[in-house]
Design a protein around this nucleic acid. Structure first.
Length: 612
DNA sequence: ATAGGGTTAG
């Protein structure tokens, strides 16, 4: 039986009533009050209005006694605030309800969990029991979600115990919650046991198991579960794809195809399924495929959501697709998807990678909250654009806000120093990281340091640095050293670096070329020939650098000598005309008629294929 | 109501 306590009775004293009014701005509610029935009020709340509308409505609810006649309005109010990311206000509403029932507790716990305040959620769960309310099949799945990570496994185990004690362990939703909880805690055997003992299972049960394996990098097991599921005639859905995602970053093309197959076979493609498919492409260095999929999504008139945009923006950055990125930004504004931290972070980074520092900064400055990721993106934006001093200044500013830089922030600032030749600053940050922040340097940091030392001409020091590293140097580390050796013509160390590189990455032709450049500089043409024949013997070709150009919403990839573009012939024709012009103008210069400054030699400009 | 999708390093 539902409680029919009027909501007015839930607000205990006049003082508390005032508190609630204070929480809400004194804004005139434009709607005619007679039109705002209880029913309409509930409907508006169910549509999760934005915070401004919500606060107006809230004051209306408090002032208009008839509107308070139904506790479901209170529930809806709490849910709406939680959806706005305001669990604190949800808590205020909750606290002032004097006659609570289990539903209020459930909604409160869920509000905390959905806003990642797991500790608070567990506290409410404990309070609930002490006040004599029995948790039910709505409560348990939610509190189980609040036990992620090993540190809360004990709580999870306790909850499992009480679930069994009250005989709710056969419930489908609770079973699914248990599978997910154990999976997240890395207890895959236990997760599997719960799954096996469930009297009935649905797609979510299986997906939870898939997610468990995937989150623990056991892609083969995750796949196995998918197949098991299919054998039981349960079709993998968008949730299955999403569950697989952590296991398919930087993976084989076979695994990418597997997810794609699921996607293609979906009877109805939800936004989530499109989003996951794009994310899979992005996380496997296939930004062009991601962008194409996005354009297809638009064609299918699927409305992108915030996750869609946040997923596709890194691809725009990787492709230097500035105008597509801008279009995404306009969409964000039009659909009022801001404020959204992850989305705005992605915007900052997209603009930075597309070389538009001003836009990056503008998004950055307009953000309500900035986290370490935001600052890191902005720091590397300056670094990428050669403004090392600004990057360093920004890092200091971040520290002043007592935001604790993480290991990635240090990679960004040190590499910014490296690109701007700020040797001493770079050294300082490495020291700061290890000694002040006690961050154990990872291979990326060592590579940055070798790059920093090497670019500053400290080739010997860079080499000693590598020798005293506590971790095995990788390809990037030796690669940074070899580049430095080429710039500073250090043949001895260059040879050593090349030796390591040929063992670590025998198929990477770029390193052969670097070494042969060193030999050429030293005039050792015989060695140059040896390297060339080595490359030939191993069937290596220098992989040309590519560049992307965006035109009319399509990404065109250019690399030297390619002829696969549908208009290849035309392009080369045009190029010949350009070459002729350059020839003529150069001739003019030699005749002292004109002064032409060209950034490229004509042979560098060779267009080609279109991946769009 | 339960699972599952997003941002930063080169």
């Amino acid at each position: 039986m539902k409680s029919v306590t009027p909501l007015s009775r839930h607000f205990s004293t006049a003082r508390q009533f005032q508190n609630l009014v204070l929480l809400t701005p004194k804004l005139e509610f434009t709607q005619k009050s007679s039109a705002l029935t209880e029913e309409l009020c509930g409907e508006i709340l169910d549509r999760y209005p934005d915070i401004k509308t919500l606060k107006k409505l809230h004051s209306k609810i408090i002032v208009d006694q008839p509107l308070c006649s139904n506790p479901s309005i209170g529930i809806k109010l709490m849910r709406a605030y939680a959806a706005c990311g305001e669990p604190g206000i949800t808590r205020h509403v909750f606290d002032e309800i004097t006659e609570k029932n289990v539903v209020f507790f459930n909604v409160m716990i869920r509000s905390y969990v959905n806003n990642h305040l797991y500790h608070d959620a567990l506290l409410v769960f404990k309070t609930m029991a002490s006040q004599g309310f029995e948790p039910d099949n709505y409560t348990y799945p939610c509190v189980l979600k609040a036990c992620p990570g090993l540190e809360n496994l004990n709580v999870g185990l306790q909850i499992h115990g009480s679930v069994v004690k009250v005989g709710l362990d056969l419930n489908l939703f609770i079973g699914n919650g248990l599978v997910a909880m154990y999976g997240k805690c890395g207890c895959l055997m236990e997760a599997r046991r719960v799954l096996d003992e469930m009297p009935s299972r649905d797609v979510v049960s299986w997906n939870s198991m898939v997610a468990g394996y995937a989150q623990n990098a056991r892609f083969d097991d995750a796949l196995e579960v998918c197949k098991e599921m299919e054998a039981l005639r349960l079709k993998p859905d968008a949730g299955t794809m999403a569950s697989l995602l952590p296991a398919v970053t930087n993976t084989t093309s076979n695994n990418v195809s597997y997810v794609k197959e699921i996607f293609m076979k979906l009877a109805k493609k939800s936004v989530v399924s499109w989003n996951v498919m794009m994310a899979v492409y992005v996380k496997n260095l296939m930004p062009a495929e991601a962008v194409n999929l996005y354009l297809q999504m638009e064609k299918n008139r699927i409305e992108p959501d915030a996750v869609t945009i946040a997923s596709i923006l890194p691809a725009c950055g990787d492709l230097s697709a500035l105008s597509l990125g801008r279009r995404m930004h306009e969409y964000v504004e039009r659909k009022k998807l801001r404020p959204n931290l992850l989305l705005e972070n992605a915007l900052v980074d997209m603009y930075a990678k597309c070389g538009s520092l001003r836009d990056a900064r503008e998004v950055f400055d307009r953000m309500k909250f900035q986290d370490v990721v935001t600052w890191t993106s902005m720091i590397s934006a300056y670094g990428l654009n050669g403004q090392g001093r600004d990057a360093v200044a920004l890092f200091a500013k971040m520290q002043n806000l007592s935001l604790s830089p993480d290991s990635i922030a240090f990679v960004s600032v040190i590499s910014a120093c490296s690109h701007a030749g700020l040797l001493e600053e770079g050294r300082y940050y490495f020291k700061l990281m290890t000694e002040e922040y006690r961050i154990i340097p990872r291979i990326e940091h060592y590579a940055c340091m070798v790059d920093l030392l090497g670019r500053s001409g400290q080739v010997d020091e860079a080499y000693s640095f590598i020798k005293q590293m506590p971790v095995e140097p990788n390809e990037r580390v030796w690669g940074a050293l070899l580049s430095a050796c080429r710039v500073y013509s250090n043949m001895n160390i260059g040879l050593l670096a090349a030796d390591h590189l040929f063992q670590l990455a025998p198929e990477q032709s770029g390193y052969y070329v670097l070494l042969s450049n060193i030999y050429a500089k030293a005039g050792r043409w015989k060695d140059v020939t040896t390297i060339r024949s080595m490359m030939k013997g191993r069937g290596l070709k220098k992989i040309p650098g590519i560049s992307n150009v965006e035109l009319n919403d399509r990404i065109h990839t250019f690399l030297a000598g390619d002829q696969s573009h549908p208009h290849s012939e035309k392009i080369y024709e045009e190029l010949d005309i350009m070459r002729l012009w350059i020839f003529l103008l150069t001739a003019a210069v030699t005749l002292d008629l004109y002064m032409i400054i060209s950034p490229h030699s004509p042979n560098d400009i060779m267009p080609a294929i279109c991946t769009g």
